[in-house]
Amino acid sequence: MTSSPQPPFSARAGGQHRQIEAAFPGTARSGLLHLLFDLVERRYVQDWTIIARELHRIGRLPLITYDSSSATSLKQARNDTEVALKSLDWQKMYDFCERLYNHLPEDIGFEDNYGNYTVEVSRKDAQSYIAAELQRLFLEEGLAYEFTDGAVRRRGRKHTVGVTVKSQVVLGDPQLLSARKHFDKALQFFRHPAKPDYENAVKEAVCAVEAAAKTLFPGAKASTLGDVIKWLGSTTDVSVPKAICQTLNGVYALRNGGDGVAHGGATGGKATVEVTEYILAVCASQIIYLVDLANAMEVDVPF
């Protein structure tokens, strides 16, 4: 199970408003090197030759043959590791973090005189430790990514993460399968570590609201989110404040008019990382609200 350490004091005191993306700073590389020393000392990773070879493979650096039984060769592998960590492209650094977790750890144990092998620390436990330490490093460095389930993903603000998780709970209803697929796509586009697609993230998030609204309110006989909004504003079956309808109209308008979001609009504003994260949080909240609204109606709803 992957641990989720809290942000350290330095990150909390300094604030996490700005996150570092499209980079793996020198301080983060230094922190990763410290972690590698720790893993070798704990024997969670066999030795420096394994680490150096993996870094050279990922970075397409020259192949070097090491001898793990030679102290001189082990020292060279450690030095080569330090050099590679300084020169590797930032995307490749995140690739290495994933490989470090998924492929380098091994069981730790011993074999008795009868040939029986006893595992003291399982590979799974070693992976859990690595995942927690990588996540801690990402938090300490204020990186825009998190390490969960063996992969690097865009992190997002605490509020965004919280409300999207809540929305995924209500989207677990089989009736809302279409909406859930759209919202999952939105998160995938947003969280892609190398090439996040903010325009498609916005489009899919609003499509999730649209799909949920059309399913939850069949009486609207709507083909678009705009139709549902009009129905919500005029029907006597349910009471929706005008301001809420305006908020729904707002995200729908961005989907239709945002730069490159859905219809090639060039005047609706650019889907920046800040705008996209805001839309994700708003759409998640809207889905939760619409589900609660439908469940509170006295008329039959598809549940």
Rank of each mutant, 00 (worst) to 15 (best):
I279H: 00
V206S: 08
D112N: 15
G264T: 04
T235L: 09
H103W: 07
L171G: 02
I279N: 00
V240C: 08
D300T: 15
L55W: 07
G260S: 11
D67I: 03
L39M: 08
R155Y: 01
A205P: 05
L35I: 06
L176A: 02
D95T: 11
D259C: 12
A213S: 15
A271S: 14
A84V: 08
Q286K: 01
G26P: 07
A253P: 01
V273H: 13
D107M: 03
G265T: 04
N113H: 12
I288E: 02
I51K: 03
V251Q: 10
K92N: 06
Q168V: 00
T247G: 12
A222Y: 03
T164L: 00
N295Y: 05
M1F: 09
T49Y: 08
I64M: 12
L290V: 08
D227Y: 08
P302T: 07
S87G: 02
Q6H: 08
A71I: 08
R53T: 15
Q188S: 13
S73V: 04
L88A: 04
S128V: 03
S69N: 14
E274G: 01
A243E: 14
G26A: 10
G14Y: 04
Q19H: 10
W48K: 11
I51T: 06
E140I: 04
G265I: 05
M93K: 04
P193Y: 03
S68I: 01
A194Y: 15
Q246K: 15
D259M: 14
D237R: 14
L36T: 02
A296C: 02
Y101I: 08
I51E: 05
A296M: 07
D125W: 11
E204T: 01
L32T: 08
R180A: 09
G150H: 07
V240W: 09
Y278M: 13
L35V: 03
N256H: 11
V282Q: 04
K185N: 15
Q286Y: 01
S239L: 07
C283V: 09
R57I: 10
E106Y: 01
V119E: 10
Y278G: 02
D300N: 14
F189E: 05
T148I: 14
D47A: 11
R78M: 13
Y117V: 10
S178M: 07
G14D: 02
F147Y: 03
L232R: 02
T236F: 05
R53V: 12
L216P: 09
L177I: 08
G258D: 01
Y117A: 05
S4M: 00
Q76E: 11
L74Q: 14
L139M: 07
L176M: 05
G150A: 08
D38K: 14
L248M: 15
V301T: 14
F9A: 13
V299I: 13
L293H: 03
Y198H: 13
G59Y: 02
T236H: 11
N256I: 04
